[in-house]
Lab assay of single mutants.
Amino acid sequence: DLSALRVEEVQNVINAMQKILECPICLELIKEPVSTKCDHIFCKFCMLKLLNQKKGPSQCPLCKNDITKRSLQESTRFSQLVEELLKIICAFQLDTGLEYANSYNFAKKENNSPEHLKDEVSIIQSMGYRNRAKRLLQSEPENPSLQETSLSVQLSNLGTVRTLRTKQRIQPQRTSVYIELGSDSSEDTVNKATYCSVGDQELLQITPQGTRDEISLDSAKKAACEFSETDVTNTEHHQPSNNDLNTTEKRAAERHPEKYQGSSVSNLHVEPCGTNTHASSLQHENSSLLLTKDRMNVEKAEF
C-alpha cells in the first residue's frame, strides 16, 4: 500500500496539472479547448457565450486583445492532455480508494470495455495498479461463464418462442383441414349439385314461356288486323247491294208514291245487322237523297 506522504505528493502534482488545464472563465477543466490569436485557451462554450454578448469583436479576458469567431481554432494537443489527466485522476481514485477533492464528473469518461483496460497499462506502473489488474484478471474467467449461461438462457427462450410460433402455425392448418373434411358430406355435395341443376332447368323453362307469350301476342295482333281488313271488305261488298236497293226503291216510288213515303220513313230507323257505323252513315245519306228525289217527283206529278 501507498504511504500517506506519497499520496499527498501525487495529489499535489495532480492539482498543479489541473490548474494549468483549467479554463480562466469557468475555472474547470477545459472541455473542447479553443485557442485565440494571443495563444490563450478557453472552453469553446465559454468563448461563444462571451462573443454573443456583444456585437462585433470582444476582448480576451487575459490580455484584452480583440477576439472574433473566425480567429478561434481548435487545439487537439490540449484536448489530449486533458484526457490523460482524467485517466490519471481515475487511476488515483481506484488505487487509494479516496475521492479526489477537486474531482469532476468523471463517470462519463469511464469505460469498462476490454480495449480501455489494455490502455490503462500505459498509465502508471504502481503496486495498487498491479493489484487491481490481478483482481480484474481473476474476475475475467467468471465473466465468460456468466456470458455462457446468459447465452444458453437466451437460446432456450428463443427455442420456446420458436416452438410456440410453430404450434400457432400448425393449429390453424389443422382446424382448416378439419373444417374441410367435416363441413360438407358427400350427400350434401350431391344435393347441392341437384339443386343447381334444377335451378338451371327452371331458368331454361322460364325463358321459352316468355317467348311463347310474345308469339301469342303477335298472333293476336295479326288476327285483329285481319279482322279489321275483313270488316272493310264487308262494308265494300254491302255498298253495291245498297245501291241495288236504292234503284228498286226509286222504281217503286215512281209507281206508288204514297205507299213509299211511309216505308221510307220506317227504313230510316232500321239498321242492317253486321255493318259498322260507317255503313250506317252512308245509308242515312242515301235515304235522305231518296226522300228529296221522291218529293221532286211528287211535285212534278201535281203540276
Rank of each mutant, 00 (worst) to 15 (best):
C60S: 01
E83L: 03
Q201H: 01
I123K: 09
V265F: 11
D213Y: 07
C38I: 00
S156G: 10
D184T: 03
G262N: 09
T160F: 03
F45E: 15
K134Y: 03
A101H: 03
A220M: 14
N52P: 01
C46L: 00
L86P: 07
M17F: 02
G262I: 06
Q138P: 08
A223Y: 11
N157Y: 03
L50C: 02
L94K: 08
F106T: 07
N246D: 15
T149N: 03
K134Q: 15
E110S: 04
S186F: 11
K221I: 15
E202A: 13
G274Y: 14
E202K: 04
N52A: 10
G128C: 05
H40S: 01
L290W: 04
Y260S: 12
F45V: 13
Y129R: 01
D39G: 15
N15M: 07
E8T: 08
D200V: 06
N143L: 12
E32C: 03
V7C: 04
K192T: 13
R169P: 15
I206N: 01
A133Q: 15
T163W: 04
L50M: 03
E236K: 13
E254F: 08
D95G: 00
F45G: 15
N157S: 06
Q80A: 05
D66G: 12
P33H: 04
D39C: 03
Q73Y: 15
A279R: 13
L204C: 03
H269L: 14
M17G: 00
Q125K: 13
R135S: 10
Q18Y: 14
L85V: 08
E83C: 09
G262E: 13
K31H: 12
K31L: 04
S35I: 15
E249S: 02
T277K: 05
T277D: 03
Q73G: 12
T207N: 07
V153M: 03
C26D: 01
Q138H: 11
Q283A: 01
S58A: 09
G128E: 13
H269S: 06
R70D: 13
K134L: 07
K44G: 01
I30K: 09
N246C: 14
T68N: 09
T275R: 12
V153I: 07
V10F: 01
S216H: 13
V121S: 06
E140Q: 03
P33L: 05
L51Y: 05
A279Q: 15
Q73I: 14
D119N: 10
T76S: 07
R212S: 14
C46E: 02
M17T: 00
L94I: 09
G159K: 12
S126E: 10
V34D: 00
L137Q: 10
R165C: 09
L21Y: 11
Q138W: 12
Y104R: 06
Q18T: 12
I123S: 15
Q138S: 11
L155W: 03
N112W: 08
L117R: 07
V34T: 03
P208T: 07
A133H: 14
S35Q: 07
Q80R: 09
L27V: 02
S280P: 09
E142N: 09
S266D: 13
E258T: 09
V34F: 02
Q11M: 04
F45A: 15
E83F: 04
S71G: 05
I20C: 02
G262C: 08
S156L: 06
L94A: 05
C46V: 00
S35Y: 13
I20G: 06
F42C: 00
L136V: 12
L203R: 13
A223R: 06
L245V: 11
L158Q: 14
L146A: 04
E214F: 01
S219I: 13
F42T: 01
P144A: 11
L48N: 14
R212Y: 06
M296T: 11
M127T: 13
H238N: 14
L291W: 03
V265T: 12
T163I: 04
Y129V: 09
K87Y: 02
A224L: 10
G274V: 11
E202R: 09
Q168P: 09
G210L: 11
C90V: 11
L146I: 10
L27F: 01
P57K: 14
S152T: 07
L29T: 06
K134V: 10
F42Y: 15
H284P: 02
K69A: 11
T248Y: 07
L164I: 04
R165S: 01
R135A: 04
T194I: 09
M17Y: 00
Q18C: 15
I124M: 15
I206L: 06
T248W: 04
K19C: 00
R162N: 02
S280K: 07
C90A: 13
D39Y: 07
L217W: 08
P144V: 11
T68V: 07
R6L: 03
K221Q: 10
G199W: 13
K64S: 03
F106Y: 12
D231L: 08
P33D: 01
S197C: 00
I30Q: 09
F78K: 00
K49C: 01
P114V: 11
K49F: 02
G199R: 08
T36G: 08
V161E: 11
C90W: 12
N131S: 07
L164S: 13
L5V: 12
L155N: 10
P24H: 00
V153H: 06
E214Y: 08
R251D: 10
L146T: 15
N112G: 11
C196W: 05
S35T: 11
I20R: 03
Q53C: 06
V270Q: 15
S139P: 12
L136R: 11
T207V: 12
L137E: 13
K54Y: 11
V7Q: 08
E302G: 14
Y129F: 06
R130N: 03
L51G: 00
L21F: 15
S216G: 05
L137G: 05
E28L: 00
F78V: 15
K19T: 02
N234K: 06
R255S: 06
F78P: 06
R165P: 09
E28K: 00
R255D: 10
D66P: 11
N52F: 02
F45K: 08
L137N: 09
V121C: 11
H256L: 10
T233W: 15
E22T: 04
L203N: 15
Q154R: 07
D188T: 13
R251H: 08
D218Q: 02
Q11H: 14
L21P: 00
R169W: 07
C38Y: 00
S264H: 06
Y260I: 13
F303Y: 15
D231C: 14
R132P: 11
E254V: 14
L81H: 01
N157A: 12
Q201C: 03
V190L: 02
T76V: 10
C60F: 00
K19H: 01
H256F: 14
R130Q: 01
H40N: 01
S145F: 07
S152D: 03
H116E: 13
S139M: 10
K259D: 13
E84Y: 01
N143F: 14
R135I: 05
Q11N: 14
S3H: 12
E254L: 01
T211I: 06
R6C: 02
P272R: 08
L51C: 07
Q11T: 13
R251G: 05
H278A: 03
L29Y: 03
I89H: 09
K118N: 12
Y104C: 06
N143V: 09
I215P: 04
N102L: 13
N234R: 04
H237I: 15
F106P: 12
K300E: 11
Q209V: 07
R255T: 03
R169D: 07
T248E: 11
E271I: 07
I206P: 14
Q261K: 07
T96K: 00
G210Y: 11
N15R: 14
L2Y: 15
Q93P: 00
T166E: 02
I89G: 06
A279S: 11
A133I: 09
C60I: 02
E9G: 01
Q261P: 07
